[in-house]
Simulated scan of single mutants.
Amino acid sequence: MARGRKVNSNGERSKQLLLEKAIELFAANGYHQTKISDIVKAASLTQPTFYLYFESKDSLFNSLNAEFNEKLMTIFDTDVEGNVSLSDLQKKLENVFTFFAQNPLLTKVGFFEAMDASVVKAELAQQLQNSIIGVQGIEHSKIVAEALVGAVERLTLTCLLTGEFTPKEVTETLMSIYFSAAQQTA
Rank of each mutant, 00 (worst) to 15 (best):
S141C: 04
C159Y: 10
I133A: 05
Q33S: 04
S37Q: 15
F99D: 06
S59D: 12
T74K: 14
C159Q: 14
N65L: 08
F179G: 04
L45S: 09
L17Y: 00
G137V: 11
T78I: 14
Q47W: 00
K35T: 05
E164N: 15
E164H: 15
E12K: 09
I138P: 10
Y178W: 12
Y31D: 09
V135G: 12
S44M: 00
Q129V: 00
V119L: 10
V135A: 08
L45E: 10
K21V: 03
L128M: 07
A114R: 01
A114G: 04
Q129N: 05
S9K: 12
G137N: 10
A122V: 06
I39C: 02
L174D: 12
K108M: 11
V109C: 05
G137E: 12
Q184F: 08
V144Y: 01
Q126L: 10
A151G: 03
V152T: 14
L64E: 07
N103K: 11
R13I: 11
A125M: 04
L17Q: 06
E139H: 01
S176F: 07
S176Q: 13
L52G: 05
A101N: 07
R5A: 06
S118W: 01
N62A: 08
R3N: 08
L105Y: 08
I23D: 02
L18F: 06
E113D: 08
L161T: 11
F61L: 05
G150T: 01
V170G: 07
A122W: 02
A66W: 01
L89E: 08
V96D: 05
G150I: 00
M1S: 15
I143D: 06
F76W: 13
T162I: 11
Q102F: 05
H140M: 12
K91V: 04
F165V: 08
F179S: 03
L105I: 00
F26Q: 03
R13G: 03
D88F: 09
E153P: 02
E172H: 14
S14Y: 02
D58M: 12
N10R: 13
G82Y: 09
R3E: 07
F165L: 15
F61G: 03
E123I: 05
S180P: 07
A22N: 00
F76D: 03
N10S: 14
Q90R: 15
K108L: 12
N29Q: 06
F61T: 02
E172Q: 15
Q184D: 10
L106Q: 09
S44Q: 01
T34P: 02
V120H: 02
F61A: 07
G30D: 09
T74P: 06
L45Q: 09
T185L: 11
G150W: 00
L128C: 03
N8T: 14
A2R: 13
L19P: 03
I75D: 05
I75V: 06
T162R: 09
A145M: 03
T156S: 14
Y51G: 09
E67D: 13
V80S: 14
Q126N: 13
Q136S: 13
V80G: 14
